Simulated assay, not measured.
Amino acid sequence: MNAALKATLAPARRACGGLTVRVAGETCVLRCSGALWIPAQGTLVASDLHMEKGSAFAVRGQMLPPYDSPATLAKLEAEVEALQPATVVLLGDSFHDRRAVERLGEADHARLARLAQGRRWVWLEGNHDLEALAGALDRLTGEVVTTRQVGALRLIHEPQAGDGAGEVAGHLHPAVRVAAHGRGVRRPCFVTDGQRILLPAFGAFTGGLDVRDPAIAGLFAAPPLVAALGRDKVHALDWGRIT
């Protein structure tokens, strides 16, 4: 990491294995789960849960294990239990398609309701779940918005053109290939230059787009920090060493 980027981000290791960085001057914790914690605002952010992706494939005859929603919600429950956030923001594409809320099981609906109890719960609209959220306000706890300002940060699903000052976005599912145990491993990752940050997909059944793809790399005027998710640690990677 070059000196200017290091000075902007002021990265620091957390006891939880996460990595603290500054984005637009706001202290953010990159969690091993792929969630973003904004401690000064008491806000937990997770992007691209894509709940009911498995059942969406099943409808089309492609059989995947029907456990993605429970697995994703278990991750979210663990983060809420650990951090006790005042606000949870789901950064769009929380559901895989327009009928996903209907297919979500009653037990999982109850889990969502319990998680939202006693805190502010915000659903950001994504390209996959725009219709799902619009038609399901009677079944979901919380509010539906297009963007949300949290301190110095502007939360939105799809990254926007321009300098992106303070932007926190998802949508692109960034991933990076790293060497581990003598072989290449593809891992979800955060990407940030200290002005904007892209979050990895939080869902259990989500693919990833290589960080070198122009859709991601083109958002940053200078090489950003890539922070790959490990089992119990977020690993900071120098852009120049990514293969």
Rank of each mutant, 00 (worst) to 15 (best):
223 P>K: 02
209 L>E: 10
228 A>W: 03
224 P>T: 01
203 G>S: 14
220 F>W: 03
235 H>Q: 07
208 G>F: 07
230 G>H: 04
232 D>S: 12
234 V>N: 02
190 F>S: 08
230 G>Y: 07
212 R>S: 11
212 R>T: 13
196 R>M: 04
198 L>Y: 05
217 A>F: 09
221 A>I: 03
196 R>D: 00
217 A>P: 06
194 G>C: 15
225 L>G: 01
226 V>I: 12
227 A>L: 04
205 F>I: 08
229 L>C: 06
204 A>G: 04
218 G>W: 07
195 Q>W: 12
216 I>W: 03
206 T>G: 10
212 R>K: 12
196 R>T: 04
223 P>R: 02
226 V>D: 00
203 G>I: 13
223 P>N: 06
206 T>H: 15
222 A>Q: 15
208 G>R: 09
198 L>E: 05
222 A>T: 09
199 L>N: 07
193 D>Y: 02
206 T>I: 15
228 A>P: 03
211 V>G: 05
220 F>L: 04
218 G>A: 05
214 P>K: 06
225 L>M: 13
228 A>Y: 05
224 P>Y: 07
218 G>C: 05
194 G>T: 04
212 R>M: 14
196 R>A: 03
192 T>V: 10
211 V>W: 12
216 I>T: 11
218 G>T: 10
217 A>I: 09
237 L>S: 06
203 G>T: 13
226 V>W: 00
230 G>R: 10
207 G>M: 14
229 L>G: 02
207 G>E: 13
216 I>Y: 08
200 P>F: 09
214 P>R: 05
193 D>C: 04
237 L>Q: 10
206 T>L: 14
219 L>S: 04
192 T>F: 10
231 R>M: 01
229 L>I: 06
208 G>S: 13
198 L>S: 14
220 F>K: 09
221 A>R: 08
194 G>D: 11
206 T>F: 12
211 V>N: 09
193 D>H: 02
237 L>F: 03
230 G>P: 01
215 A>F: 03
197 I>R: 07
234 V>H: 02
204 A>P: 01
195 Q>S: 14
193 D>W: 06
204 A>C: 08
234 V>R: 04
204 A>L: 08
236 A>G: 04
231 R>I: 00
203 G>D: 14
200 P>R: 08
235 H>C: 02
214 P>T: 05
201 A>K: 09
213 D>V: 11
227 A>Q: 01
193 D>E: 14
